[in-house]
């Protein structure tokens, strides 16, 4: 019956000639140079400043910062700066809690929303609201909510049956908890949105085929839906990891990094050093260190994504 048949070669687009590629390069060169300049200039400047002890109060313009050349001293200081390490560690903790919680909440919501149910549209719009709130405003909102005489304590009092007056924002551990809650509130919707987009794009007929082959919901989810969402999951997590590293507005407004340094993340630390201590050479060194860490995260994510394809 089935004789082996010469397979029709799949129609591949014919390769561009090298001439066309060269022309393309020339035409886009100005734009590429501009992008390169925009991206590279601040980094080069940052590297340069980080090797000096320059501060805007020194009275010399930044390009003459070489007069205050100190070599790698800023980096040596940084390595021995306990406040830097604690801020970095705290940022990692925030990230390690926020990203998984946001991911699983977002995934759960996406599973819920991939099918139709009454009231879906209204609920959908409501869920996206936090994302559209200006982070500073969200910060103030949570600042109010977590006051010792605020709604959170009122609610708890109602359940407890006696007045509760937890000092959310002045207890070091609880303050960290409070800022994490605000971050989760604000950014779970983004995770949800990205994951929903990914879930909707999983081909319907493949899911149908799996059902017809007798696959249960769980099997279908883990063998068809999740594997096909791999790329988008990596993107979503990478975005949130990077964003979490830079978290600032609502944290700063709720606690100012305090009490003490209990909620001081890396961004808040940089801000304080910049604005309050004005040692910009040192700031440049910190920023560069962070850039390197984030670049490694991005590279890993991109690498994973290539693997997924």
């Amino acid at each position: 019956m089935t004789q082996p048949i010469a397979a029709p070669a799949s129609a591949t687009p014919e390769a561009d000639t090298s001439e066309e590629k060269r022309l393309g390069l020339w035409l886009t060169l100005p734009a590429q140079l501009l992008v390169l300049f925009i991206a590279l200039f601040p980094i080069c400047m940052q590297i340069y400043i980080s090797l000096t002890d320059w501060s805007p109060l020194d009275g010399i313009p930044w390009y003459r910062a070489y007069e205050l050349w100190i070599g790698l001293l800023n980096y040596v200081d940084l390595a021995g700066d306990p406040r830097f390490w604690s801020a970095l560690w705290r940022t990692c903790i925030v990230m390690a809690i926020c990203v998984p919680v946001q991911f699983f909440l977002g995934l759960g919501l996406a599973i819920l929303f991939v099918d139709d149910f009454p009231g879906k549209r209204v609920l959908y719009s409501t869920l996206l609201v936090p994302m559209m709130v200006v982070p500073a405003v969200a910060g103030y909102m949570f600042f109010m909510l977590f006051q010792s005489g605020g709604p959170v304590n009122d609610l708890l009092s109602l359940f407890a049956g006696r007045p509760v007056t937890i000092a959310w924002l002045s207890d070091p551990d609880l303050a960290l908890f409070a800022v994490i809650v605000s971050d989760i509130w604000q950014w779970t919707p983004l995770m949800f949105l990205i994951l929903l987009a990914g879930m909707v794009s999983v081909p319907q007929d493949q899911q149908m085929a799996a059902v017809l082959l007798g696959a249960s919901w769980t099997r279908r989810f883990f063998t068809i839906v999740l594997p096909r969402m791999k790329t988008i999951i990596i993107i979503a997590i990478a975005i949130r990891v990077i964003e979490n590293f830079k978290v600032f507005d609502n944290f700063y407004i709720m606690t100012g990094g305090g009490p003490g340094v209990a909620t001081e993340t890396i961004s808040i630390y940089i801000y304080k050093v910049t604005q309050q201590e004005l040692i910009w050479g040192y700031v440049a060194a910190i920023a560069l260190a962070i850039l390197i860490v984030l670049s490694i995260v991005s590279a890993l994510a991109i690498n994973k994504m290539k693997g997924a394809k």
């Binding site: 081909p203 007929d205 493949q206 149908m208 085929a209 799996a210 017809l212 063998t223 068809i224 594997p227 096909r228």
Partner: peptide, 12 residues
């Protein structure tokens, strides 16, 4: 069921 576009699980 054989689908019009075969619905093969291309990631497997």
């Amino acid at each position: 069921f054989v689908f019009q576009n075969y619905a093969i699980f291309t990631h497997m």
